[in-house]
Design a protein around this nucleic acid. Structure first.
Length: 271
DNA sequence: ATGCGGACCTGTTAGC
DNA sequence: TGCTAACAGGTCCGCA
């Protein structure tokens, strides 16, 4: 379920329920995720208090004195704080049970997600150490994006989806931001002017901020804490609209494949 | 260094 | 109705 907005909504949803609370036990039913869950998690997390609930890129970081739990939701993962957890279902792989009875439940049918326990600075973890800037931070701007693209001949869509360039831009928002900026997703990254990169960095911020504002409702099967289904509150102008009229000019939105991922754009408006 | 394809999994939907 | 193929929000890794 994750694009950055969904991860941020998840963070905001679970933080009040678990911050400042001690972990009682960790129940692991399936340790084979993207990477196997290490034995250290169940051994070292119980007894610790969750001091912080942070996000870096699409990773959620639960900080304690002893170490940090780094969680990624992959393609189909979710994390819910339940006060009355029912019996675990098929894909409920991990429960983190707190002293106040709250159960933080990790569910992930495709198991592309991950749960990593580290005793060191999580930002130095090999998966986090080389990440680019956060898209909503000021250091991510047109000038940065322009410079990062010098000499790059690959498609701009792949460039903005590359976590070394900027984190958190997933397949849906890449299409949406490029649509809003009027840039053809296939255009070589290194052949886009500074003003257009300024526009693109702005549209990336806008599209992500808006999605967070409306509750991270990008995804078909995402339901926030209030049970409001996603995908409908957020207006998608290009993504998943193959053959439908472009809101700007009326010509048909087209679906192409870039880097093995579906890509949607308006051949008339995006150059 | 950059760029590309393959890999990891399961579930849902479109098509015959 | 039933079977099969295509496709789905991510991103790491190895090879050219």
């Amino acid at each position: 379920m994750p694009e950055l907005p969904e991860v941020e909504i998840t963070r905001r949803g679970i933080a009040p329920a678990i911050k400042g609370i001690a972990v009682k036990k960790v129940v692991i039913r399936q340790r084979r995720l993207r990477w196997p869950i290490s034995a250290g998690l169940a051994r070292e997390l119980p007894g610790e208090t969750v001091d912080s609930v942070d996000r870096r890129a699409k990773y959620l970081l639960l900080g304690t004195t002893a170490g940090t739990l780094i969680t990624h939701l992959g393609m189909s993962g979710s994390l819910r704080a339940l006060s009355n957890p029912g019996p675990a279902q098929k894909h409920d792989h991990v429960d983190i049970v707190f002293a106040n009875g709250t159960c933080l439940r990790f569910t992930d049918p495709r198991r592309f997600g991950s749960m990593l326990w580290t005793r060191r600075d999580p930002l130095r973890h090999r998966l986090l150490a080389r990440l680019g800037p956060e898209p909503l931070h000021p250091e991510f701007d047109g000038e940065y994006l322009y410079k990062s693209a010098r000499g790059r001949r690959g498609a701009i869509k792949l460039h903005i989806m590359n976590a070394a360039t900027v984190v958190g831009v997933g397949n849906i928002y890449a299409s949406e931001a490029l649509y809003a900026a009027g840039i053809n997703p296939r255009r070589a990254a290194g052949r886009i002017s500074l003003p257009r990169m300024q526009l693109l960095s702005d549209t990336i911020k806008l599209v992500l901020e808006n999605a967070i504002k409306v509750g991270g409702t990008t995804l078909r099967d995402f339901t926030g804490g209030d049970g409001q289904p996603g995908y409908f509150q957020l207006e998608l102008n290009a993504y998943d609209r193959d053959g439908q009229p472009c809101p700007g000019c009326g010509s048909a939105i087209r679906r192409i494949v870039i880097g093995q991922r579906s890509t949607f754009y308006c051949p008339h408006c995006q150059t």
